[in-house]
């Protein structure tokens, strides 16, 4: 009896310790970087590392305001490109998903074709697109990046929206059709509000994926349209010893996606597993 009582305390405690250890280990790179970004230059280079220190914001000030750092521009580019991509992907995928589900155009083939794109390495598109973009003057523009990032995010977004529309009861649309609503009106006024969670999930994933994208930005931008991922890695080469600034730059680049994810955590698990599994 006594033994059982002891284990009923120890087992959950042990479980919590393991849980915390798992979370700590997997998030240690982010935590380590965030800690470094708030240390003074002297504290960063002190070995053994100081775990308790007086946090400073100087590296963030330097990254954002000091002369010679292009970081605000990278940041702005990332925001514009990620938002633009999310909008374009939704605008293309919502009608397409509706057509695929309700009219069964092509008997499932369009969906499978688009989804199989997800498996291809992005690098195989870079060479022809690089040359094509040079001809049509889309190289080093945000629009060029938005177009290519949309292509990368299409598969998951389309899959998600198809799944959500499949779950809609058909009766609502039929009632609206009898009332004489045209398909675009139906999509806008009835389908769209009903699948808002699906739209949210698709937007979230597209935004995060685009924000994190590196290879396209590396190949298709030179200076004007460079995004934070490429900007922050250039930063390392250019300012190799300014570790505080580098840590602040990475933290700034990572935080938006993390906030986005934590805000939508309720839908996150469903969205990701759904998007990849269905």
């Amino acid at each position: 009896m006594r033994k059982r009582r002891a284990s009923s305390i120890i087992a959950p405690a042990l479980r919590w310790i393991v849980t915390l250890a798992i979370l700590l280990v997997f998030n240690s790179p982010i935590l380590g970087t965030i800690i470094t970004s708030f240390k003074t230059k002297a504290d960063i280079s002190s070995m053994p590392p100081k775990w308790i220190f007086h946090p400073v914001l100087e590296h963030y000030q330097n990254v954002l305001y000091a002369f010679g750092y292009d970081f605000p521009k990278f940041f702005q580019n990332s925001i514009v490109v990620s938002l633009g991509t999310s909008l374009l992907v939704l605008a293309v995928c919502l009608p397409a998903a509706y057509s695929i589900v309700r009219y069964d155009v092509g008997g499932g083939r369009p969906l499978i074709f688009v989804v199989s794109l997800r498996l291809l390495p992005v690098v195989v598109f870079t060479v022809p697109i690089f040359i094509l973009f040079q001809y049509v003057r889309l190289l080093d523009t945000r629009i060029g990046l938005i177009l290519m990032n949309s292509l990368v995010s299409l598969p998951i977004a389309l899959l998600l929206l198809v799944g959500f529309i499949q779950d809609l009861p058909r009766a609502i649309e039929e009632a609206a059709m009898i009332d004489g609503a045209s398909t675009p009106r139906l999509l806008w006024h009835i389908v769209l509000p009903l699948i808002l969670p699906g739209l949210g999930a698709a937007t979230m994933l597209t935004f995060v994926w685009t924000w994190n994208e590196y290879l396209l930005s590396l190949v298709l931008t030179l200076r004007k349209a460079t995004t934070v991922t490429v900007g922050a890695s250039l930063f390392v080469t250019a300012w190799e010893v300014q570790w505080g600034e580098i840590a602040a730059a990475i933290t700034l680049s990572v935080i938006p996606t993390l906030i986005f994810v934590m805000l939508t955590q309720r839908h996150l698990i469903r969205a990701i597993s759904f998007g990849f599994l269905k």
């Binding site: 997997f26 380590g32 890695s233 990475i250 698990i269």
Partner: peptide, 18 residues
């Protein structure tokens, strides 16, 4: 679970820099 999923939401390139 959301905290555990955070690493896959970090840009792989930035993780490399980290």
């Amino acid at each position: 679970i959301s905290l555990f999923l955070l690493p896959m939401m970090v840009s792989p390139a930035l993780l490399g820099v980290m």
